[in-house]
Amino acid sequence: MHEYSIVQSLVSAVEAAVGDRRNAAVHRVEVAIGEVAGVDCGLLTTAFEVFRAGTLCEHASLTIESIAALWQCPNCGVAIERGKSLRCALCNEPARLAAGDEIFLQRIELEVA
């Protein structure tokens, strides 16, 4: 359940992004989570709902964009089909993860009076 630790880091990152606009309430937090980042989106949502109390995110909603894993050959760029061996059938090069390991705070929305 490292999602609780991730939420603590997320709240800190949001606080840093809010900076000195402390009179603005955080309305929404948007994150991107990769398929093979090792973070469960359901658990992340639950952890956020528990830990936002008493923080700048207390009344904020959480939007999670899931990013599909994409393994590619670094040489010819061909995508490796899901579940196959992670080596290019044409070039015999080990694949590289082009997308899917994101644990990213993308943007926040502030309510400005």
């Binding site: 309430a25 990213f104 705070l105």
Partner: peptide, 17 residues
């Protein structure tokens, strides 16, 4: 109604770690 202002952040959540 309040105004909603988006703020682009684009940072790794575990950047401190």
């Amino acid at each position: 109604d309040v105004n909603i202002v988006p703020v682009e952040v684009q940072t790794r959540i575990l950047s401190r770690n």
